[in-house]
């Protein structure tokens, strides 16, 4: 059913919090996502021409890099992009078959590969580019929030996290229940002022992005050390000796 489930306030909202301050753009999350999901719930994630020019394939996570700001405030920001498991996702309501759905119990947005007709309308309806067509089997694919890891009782409890989260070497990705204000992820979002992407479209993304921290003014105002004169800048050896003696 592609009508959205009735979800009371405070219902479980599983999602990710991504810290753009610490992400180094290493692509580990994208790679481990591909590795796990190529044989997971939405497998396969086909690749076309993998060993030649024009290689491409289905990925659930894509890491962009941007330059933001000018001058001293300017910086490079690495930006992982994946499904935000929105609260009012049009990718679900536009689906004509009921293949695209939002789970009532935890808010995860999934595609049923058995009933998807591959019309592609949901990909048009997603502002974030989170859905990619599997052009091999003609059905839509997307991030499952590693539904086959987070509830998987056959793996050790510490590993019941999405593949992208568990692999991130800088701990820039966090997973948890954003519907519970006391959860670690909600606390983190509150502390760091986590943001929605394109809030003006009204999809109500569950995933939040933590912005790069303000540069401390001590850092931006510090002068390069070369600017301060050193004793070697005094050409006359006598004056240089006097400078050294007097500066003691």
């Amino acid at each position: 059913m592609t009508s959205l489930p009735d979800r009371p306030a405070g219902a479980k909202k599983l999602g990710l919090v991504i810290d753009l301050d610490t992400c180094v753009g290493c692509q580990a999350c994208a790679t481990n996502c591909k590795e796990w999901n190529a044989s997971g719930h939405s497998a396969p994630l086909p690749d076309f021409k993998p060993y030649s020019a024009g290689a491409e394939g289905v990925w659930f996570n894509r890491v962009h890099s941007y330059e933001a700001g000018e001058g001293e405030q300017g910086r490079t920001v690495h930006f992982p992009r994946s499904c935000l498991h929105c609260e009012t996702p049009a990718c679900v309501t536009v689906c004509p078959t009921g293949a695209s759905y939002k789970r009532a119990e935890d808010g995860i947005v999934l595609v049923n590969a058995e009933t998807c007709i591959g019309c592609g309308l949901c990909a048009w309806a997603c502002p974030y580019g989170a859905r990619e067509m599997d052009e091999d089997s003609g059905v839509m694919k997307k991030c499952t929030l590693c539904i086959d890891r987070i509830y998987n009782e056959t793996i050790p409890e510490a590993q019941r996290q999405p593949a992208c989260v568990i692999t991130c070497p800088t701990r820039a990705r966090h997973f948890g229940d954003l519907g519970d204000p006391d959860s670690a992820v909600s606390q983190l979002v509150a502390r760091r002022g986590g943001q929605d992407l394109m809030p003006e479209l009204g999809y109500g993304p569950v995933n939040k992005y933590l912005q790069p921290r303000e540069r401390s003014s001590a850092l931006t105002e510090a002068k390069p050390v070369e600017d301060a004169p050193t004793p070697m800048d005094i050409p006359n050896p006598l004056l240089r000796w006097m400078d050294r003696v007097l500066s003691r």
Binding site: Y66, E70, P127
Partner: peptide
């Protein structure tokens, strides 16, 4: 607004996530 980075300033793409 798509990246949420507007508070820092103008945003320009630097590296794409894939070259193909």
């Amino acid at each position: 607004s798509a990246t949420g980075l507007g508070a820092i300033g103008r945003v320009r793409p630097l590296d794409p996530p894939h070259t193909e």
